[in-house]
């Protein structure tokens, strides 16, 4: 299956392919967010990130589905 991953701010620099803001990723069926993050080689600790699937916060053991829009964000806040 394929999901679309949107990387925010400094996480864009942490992919094997170099800086990427948005990428399609092929995953084995049944993969979780944690699997995806490991595949991508993201180094930020999970507690420092917000994981968002289709506009809603999701835990790292969330099982992904075909076509999901996944956002990985450093957990910042402010304005």
């Amino acid at each position: 299956m394929k999901v679309t991953v949107h990387l925010h701010t400094i996480l864009q620099r942490q992919t094997p392919e170099g800086p990427q803001r948005r990428m399609d990723v092929a995953l084995l069926s049944g993969s979780t967010l944690a699997d995806l993050i490991e595949d991508l080689g993201i180094e930020m600790p999970l507690e420092g990130m917000l994981l968002v699937v289709n506009g809603r916060t999701a835990p790292s053991n969330h099982i992904l589905n075909e076509g999901d829009q996944v956002h990985l964000m450093p957990a910042i806040s402010g304005g």
């Binding site: 925010h8 701010t9 968002v52 506009g55 956002h71 964000m73 910042i76």
Partner: peptide, 8 residues
């Protein structure tokens, strides 16, 4: 950096 976050 909040722009893409709130949009998401």
């Amino acid at each position: 950096a909040m722009t893409r976050m709130t949009n998401a």
